[in-house]
Amino acid sequence: MSRPPVRTDVWARLRQATDARIGLGRSGEALPTRPMLDLQYAHALARDAVHTPLAVEAVAGALATLPTIVVESLAGGAYLTRPDLGRRLALGDSDRLKPSDADLALVLGDGLSAGAVAESGPVLVRALIGRLPGWTPAPIVIARQARVALGDEIGGRLGVQVVVMLIGERPGLSAPASLGAYITWNPAVGRLDSERNCVSNIRPGGLSIDEAAGRIAWLVDAARRLRLTGVGLKEAYPSDETIRLEVRPSG
């Protein structure tokens, strides 16, 4: 049976405090039909987000005048089960990345949510470049089947000081299209997760593009100043800004 209607207004108020699925009522012990289907629909959207391929042309088009290079990892069709292959460039692609006078690499990786990259990636890249006047970015790298650490090889090949990997995060039901940014000083194959900083939950309804660009740019500048990223940089970050600044396993 459903909860008595007399309490509806209370639950409506409580629901304003959280997106959690509270006050759903019950049919016997089970979820009533409507909230059961609501959960299935949210899961379906998240599943589709995982399996939708990156719209490379659309992303490159949205970057307009910025030069781009499209690469792919070694993962092929085994992206979900072989994170190790998602951290290395496909044969052939590695030779296309060459050192130049650039000192900063910006990478858009599909990760687990290509939709997040398409939605927020290009605009975040533009916002970042605007906030990093002291830097010379390499052509924007668009990477398919990418894990976070793929940025290490990309940055190493490009010979830059810092790589920023902007990658689709593991989708949640309330956030199927969220970007994470991983900042790594002196990128090279074999960097540890503890050697990078992360700004996560970049999405509409989460961390805004403007806020995210500000935090990432602060980290990029600080990396050059301290000549490091990761745990050592986390400790130097202004204390009131720690909430979304993390060092964490990146997959």
Binding site: I22, L24, L39, A42
Partner: peptide, 12 residues
């Protein structure tokens, strides 16, 4: 977990 959906850890 409310409705089986953890809105912080993003899993069910």
């Amino acid at each position: 977990v409310p409705g089986g959906d953890d809105i912080m850890l993003h899993y069910q």
